[in-house]
Design a protein around this nucleic acid. Structure first.
Lengths: 237, 237
DNA sequence: ATTCACACGTGACGC
DNA sequence: TGCGTCACGTGTGAA
């Protein structure tokens, strides 16, 4: 039940706390596992605990068998403890099959994986590098030019205000904007339309303006190690 | 390797595909599991396949033992197959411990759980019921009234346009907006400021306006069963 | 009475 | 060699 208290200062837990991509061979004890510290000393130097005598072949093999038996028991306990932990983590009662439990776990992992990756895809997660991309809608069915501008840079509190001012000064009307901040960075995708007489050269103006916007951002330095990698989003209308 | 093709039309998979909160007892075969259809007829009516003779007690017990042995083998295969599947799902090589593998699975599940719940908390996930809440900033340090309005309702394409028009007509200036759509519903949190002479009674105007906004939404009926429960966000600047 | 899931101890194999 | 994991067959108790 106790979530994270492993005997001996969580030596193994430190291995397990890694974010996942590490492929290290980890040896895992369950959280509530008792180290077999019984009456043991290192088996090579201590007399066998069996009958009375020490080193007859039968005694050795008997002791080995006993050791083996106990080790195997510990292994089973370890595995089952993990399974119980999984049982408690998933929505299922205590008496579900091992196999069914594992099946549920698989589904859950796939599900969660899918979920986050969907979010990652759907959200325009900001990249680590600054980016400005601009795409114009050629088939101007509206009679007015549509521009989609994507802007990725360090986040700062007044970036949006500046962005809006910029658009206003260029007489670009924001139709739709999507903004995602993650780990101190921000990605902004905006769709703007110009006036009827807007020429394609204003695209260059926009690009320049966004560039200077980013430069204003990059003057601030941020301690990036302290950032939390969680999603956030803010929008300015 | 084949992800989802279970023999006999995926009868069990249908159970497993449930989203999780169902607490049904599911019996789970691995995806690549072969049903034991061997040379079997129902064991009560067919002669035992052992030596030559049929119904001596020894023959019965032998057959029972054989059955048991095979059943147990199938069970092991089922569990191990699931474990292999998990192994392939996680970042770990093929020769990791069962226990360590399970430990990794636990970590992964907890991790992903945490991740999505973080997102859920952070995002103003829209609720199933319509909501309008308005909160005003009393300590008007700016000298102008700040209003935070939260709006949760069915999503529709022109909701934002209407919202912006509404705000404009009330002479409310949008400072910040956050918008989350999920499963066909939308939650919108906007922070607006009024003119200097704005009185608190305009809060009521705003509330009324938002109410009518929602009513316009609820006239459309949507097939809610077909919605995908994924995040989406759109913003209008 | 059969089926099912589990724990157990043992032989095998690897480092 | 010991120490570890694994697969196996069996005994047992529950439905």
């Amino acid at each position: 039940m106790q979530p994270e208290n492993f005997p001996e200062s969580g030596y193994f837990n430190r291995f397990l706390s890694g974010k996942g991509t590490t492929d290290v061979e980890t040896y895992s004890y369950p959280a509530n596992y008792e180290l077999p510290a019984k009456s043991s000393c290192s088996s090579s130097f201590c007399p066998w605990e069996i009958s009375g005598f020490t080193d007859t072949p039968e005694a050795r093999s008997l002791a080995a068998s006993k050791n083996h038996k106990e080790a195997e028991k510990r292994r089973r306990e370890r595995i089952n403890s993990h399974l119980d932990r999984l049982r408690s983590l998933l929505p299922c009662n205590a008496k579900t099959d091992k196999a069914s439990l594992l099946a549920k776990v698989i589904e859950r992992v796939k599900e969660l994986k899918q979920e986050t990756s969907e979010i990652m895809q759907l959200e325009n997660v900001p990249s680590e590098s600054d980016e400005i991309t601009i795409h114009t809608d050629d088939n101007a069915s509206y009679g007015r030019l549509l521009i989609e501008a994507s802007l990725c840079c360090e986040d700062r509190s007044d970036l949006i205000v500046d962005l809006i001012e910029t658009l206003k000064s260029l007489h670009l009307k924001p139709l739709r904007a999507e903004m995602v901040t993650l780990g101190g960075r921000i990605r902004n995708v905006i769709i703007v339309s110009g006036e009827n007489d807007l020429s394609t050269e204003s695209v260059e103006y926009l690009k320049d303006a966004l560039r200077s916007l980013i430069q204003r951002s990059s003057s601030e330095s941020v301690d990036r190690s302290k950032r939390r990698r969680v999603f956030n989003r803010q929008l300015i209308a």
